[in-house]
Design a protein around this nucleic acid. Structure first.
Length: 594
RNA sequence: UGGGCUAUGGUGUAAUGGUAACACUGCAGAUUCUGGUCCUGCCUUUCCUGGUUCGAGUCCGGGUAGCCCAACCA
């Protein structure tokens, strides 16, 4: 069971949690079983940080022959919704993972309740009727012990009666809570009589009106793990201080269940790794929700969002995301990862995946004066030059498409300079370049009587409106004479008459500062504002650049949404979900290097 | 300030007491019908300080710096 799948790449050392799992399995802990869980709260969409947790929770189960359940942590009905449940399931599947089953914390509400009653009867819990302010005041500070609640030692029967009252719907939220009787002087704040249950008087999207009092995270998670049979409960570092409480509740529930199993070898155990921080990126669900509500972005799947669905729409493949996560690894160090590493991981994946197409995003007309008017040639374009056989030759079968060539073309404005100098390897007067999959062309350096280059047409403001060149008919790509070496680069182009006007959306970081989370927090503190008002100063006004003047070859315009493309010499692009063949829209995933 | 956690090039990670390495970034070069890819080279590392040890990035003590914890959120 403990044999990891052999990877296709060279052997990579196991991360510290994988090593722990391997050891536990070898020692026969939990009967040699491995069971994990991915426990999102369905109160928002999954983001790239969750992808890291998903890759761990599902990935480690897969690697060591265990099972991972998807468990919705739905103990707070006021924030949760089925919309999110569906999105979560969709995103996990898209990433390529499978769960054993879908569970809900709410599946255990009855058992949790019964367990809580047992805690009351066994002097481990009591109903507190103080206000939240009073309770907070008694909690003490990290350096000062708390003080006991006056209700702490009330009779168990009274607590039990009031606890049941808490679920009747007749108790106002905030009037009563159930607390665990632990230690108000503990240096661990979580041990200072933590809240087990609170009254919400709200229906739950799964259990309807059955419950009015709901359990808190700390009184739910470990128990759910225990009841479900989880062996390794893997979470992020901020839960380290909860671990002792997790363990305590697990010992209690084992006692309640009469479970004689060894606490050392037979129980769920919590492990923590560092969560994902990305520079120029804001990760928290709470803040992402604000961005969608305030219309800063176009919704959860806006390509600028760090959500799984946003990144998908941006054009990342699941493999690109997993490639990135594999590169950053799992440790206990609170790292701030460079977004460039994610982009590099994406390029690496898309290089082997994306179909090469031609798109001209800032067009200027190019006329080949010696090319027959009305003539159209069908040129063969390689879809993906990384598809190679064993000898390293590009595979041509099913790996090409046709691009039409004619007398009038568009090229990039930036690919022509009247006076580019020696280092400018593209087109200009007296320069020769190759048109990709086409011909070698040249511009004359002849000047007219006014000293202007004959190959350039300009408008009254001096902007170039048209470039004239001649083509060399012997140099069509694939022909014997085509290999002639020239100084110039190879340019991409589209045929004016055979290209489709399209919309191209380029993206920049949503944030102008490297660590928006901290910057926003600081701004809130300094200026006494919260939410969107603290975010606005750091939002990049140029995060979205819409270009409606681009042209793309016909083949690319016909591709379905979410197709992976490379606009040659520009970047990786993806067909937007709102794109239609008549009005194609493309999202820039990431630029080419350099 | 109490408790917990952490510290390896610019960034992330490896080295599990035995020669500090890998990826990314950056720079330079070669190849190229993409200024991409592929290939080559270069730059830059164990927070400080004591100790244990034949030997310390690793173990221990003391500093320093950062993160988490005082929600009826998870």
């Amino acid at each position: 069971m403990a044999v990891p799948e052999t990877t296709t790449t060279e052997k990579k050392s196991l991360n510290f949690i994988e090593q722990k799992v391997e050891k536990d399995l070898a020692e026969g802990k939990n009967g040699g079983r491995l069971q994990t869980r991915f426990p999102p709260e369905p109160n928002g969409y999954l983001h790239i940080g969750h992808a890291k947790a998903i890759a761990m929770d599902f990935g480690i189960a897969k690697k060591f022959g265990g099972v991972c359940n998807l468990r919705m942590d739905d103990t707070n009905p006021q924030k949760e919704d089925t919309e999110y449940v569906e999105a979560i399931e969709r995103d996990i599947k898209w990433l390529g993972f499978e769960w054993g089953k879908v569970c809900y914390a709410s599946d255990y509400f009855q058992e949790l309740w019964d367990f809580a009653e047992w805690c009351i009867l066994n002097n481990k819990a009591y109903v507190d009727e103080q206000t939240s302010e009073e309770i907070a005041a008694q909690k003490g500070t990290p350096t000062e012990a708390g003080t006991n609640s006056p209700y702490r030692d009330r009779p168990a029967e009274e607590s039990l009666r009031l606890f049941r009252e808490m679920n009747s719907g007749n108790v106002e939220p905030g009037k009563m809570i159930l607390r665990a009787k632990i230690d108000m002087a503990s240096p661990n704040m979580h041990f200072r009589d933590p809240i087990m249950y609170r009254v919400l008087n709200l229906p739950h999207w799964r259990t309807g009106n059955k419950w009015n009092a709901y359990p808190m995270y700390d009184f739910t998670h470990g128990q759910s793990d225990y009841l479900e049979g989880v062996t390794h409960s893997i979470c992020t570092l901020e839960f380290v201080p909860h671990r002792d409480l997790y363990d305590l509740f697990v010992t209690w529930i084992k006692e309640w269940k009469g479970d004689e199993g060894d606490m050392e070898d037979n129980r769920p155990r919590q492990f923590e790794f560092n969560k994902l921080n990305l520079n120029y990126t804001l990760m928290s669900k709470r803040n992402l929700l604000i961005l969608t509500k305030e219309g800063v972005v176009d919704g959860w799947d806006d390509p600028r969002m760090p959500t799984i669905c946003g990144i998908r729409r941006r054009g990342y493949s699941p493999e690109a995301i997993l490639n990135f996560i594999d590169k950053i690894g799992y440790t206990t160090f609170d790292a701030l990862n460079d977004i460039k590493l994610m982009e590099a991981a994406c390029r690496e994946d898309l290089n082997t995946r994306a179909i090469r197409v031609s798109a001209v995003v800032d067009p200027v007309k190019l006329v080949l004066d010696n090319y027959p008017e009305g003539q159209v040639e069908e040129m063969v374009a390689i879809n993906n030059p990384e598809l190679k056989d064993e000898e390293g030759n590009i595979i041509n079968e099913n790996n090409t498409h046709i691009i039409k060539f004619s007398r009038e073309l568009y090229i990039e404005r930036a690919d022509f300079m009247e006076d580019g100098g020696k280092k400018f390897m593209r087109l200009g007067p007296g320069k020769e370049v190759r048109l990709k999959n086409g011909y070698i062309i040249a511009c004359s350096d002849e000047k007219d009587e006014n000293g202007n280059f004959r190959c350039i047409e300009k408008d009254s403001e001096g902007n170039i409106t048209c470039i004239h060149a001649t083509y060399d008919p012997e140099t069509r790509s694939g022909l014997p004479g085509a290999d002639r070496k020239i100084k110039g680069k190879t340019l991409h182009w589209v045929s004016c008459a055979h290209s489709i006007p399209c919309e191209v959306r380029d993206y920049n970081c949503l944030w102008t500062c490297e660590n928006p989370r901290d910057a926003i927090k600081q701004y809130e503190k300094d200026n006494g504002v919260r939410g969107i008002d603290a975010m606005r100063p750091f939002i990049n006004p140029d995060s979205l650049c819409v270009n409606k003047n681009a042209f793309i070859e016909e083949y690319a315009a016909s591709l379905p949404a979410l197709s992976y493309l490379q606009f040659q010499r520009i970047g990786y692009y993806n067909v937007d979900t709102d794109s239609t063949p008549g009005k194609p829209i493309f999202n820039k995933t990431v630029g080419l290097k350099g």
